[in-house]
Amino acid sequence: MSTTQNILRPAPRTGTAPTESIPWVRYALSALALLIIALFLILPLVAVLFEAFREGVGAYVDAITDPYTGHAILLTLITALTCVPLNTLFGIAAAWCIARFQFPGRSLLTTLIDLPFSVSPVIAGLVFILIFGSQGWFGGWFAAHGFPIIFALPGIVLATMFVTLPFVARELIPLMQEQGSEQEEASIMLGASAWRMFWTITLPRIKWGLLYGVILCNARAMGEFGAVSVVSGHIRGATNTLPLHVEILYNEYQFSAAFAVATLLAGLAIVTLIIKSIVEWRQQRQWENASS
């Protein structure tokens, strides 16, 4: 099962081998798989919608148009609009140096980039409190200069950047390693500038992988709960992102309102999944065209 073999021959996705077609086994397993998908994945989505409209369309609209909800939407958008572009630039830079050059400490760097995936979001929030909190290393200094980080927007952005750091880099590193650097080297030898090489050779070849990483990064940035919850202080109308707003409403027993706001986040998840499958499909096509 070598990688080259995979590139040359995309695995067949459909069709059954003659040996495995005992009908009842196939039907039973298919039914079981669909049941798992229905119970664990579809039912929760249906329940979010059902609970959101339980008290009628009016209550739903009220919850969505509430000023606190509006502020939470704004804060979530600001956070995502800060973190996603920064992490995209980071991901491209990290993939470029890791996939294109040999240097000591390369695998250590890769491990450190992956690390946020295996750290609990709560610990991700905690570490920034240790550094920037009132008893932290630099917290006093920043607060004294009128620029508090914890229980304020910068803390939310830092914690979100930590949890979303690996998304773009992880998507691009294996992709660029597999593509190899011959075309880029050729363009440089033919006299192209670094800038021109990036825009005409590198970017077109990684665009689908990049987009894939960016939408996953965005979904996590908008939906992050644990890390943001620890650093935000839950100040309504000030440091309350959408997921935190859902929690507050739910804990105040305003269930319909909580689910109404949750439909916005569930909608985000669905849109993310749809874009993701389109990108996967385009990526596969680009790949097949390249290899045929």
């Binding site: 994945l41 929760p44 939906g223 997921p243 739910y250 949750a262 986040l265």
Partner: peptide, 20 residues
């Protein structure tokens, strides 16, 4: 595509809906 829903759905939403 739906398999990835738990990755894409914010955890707070998953939490309240599973509780319900």
């Amino acid at each position: 595509s739906l398999i990835d829903l738990p990755f894409a759905l914010p955890t707070a939403v998953a939490g309240i809906v599973l509780t319900t």
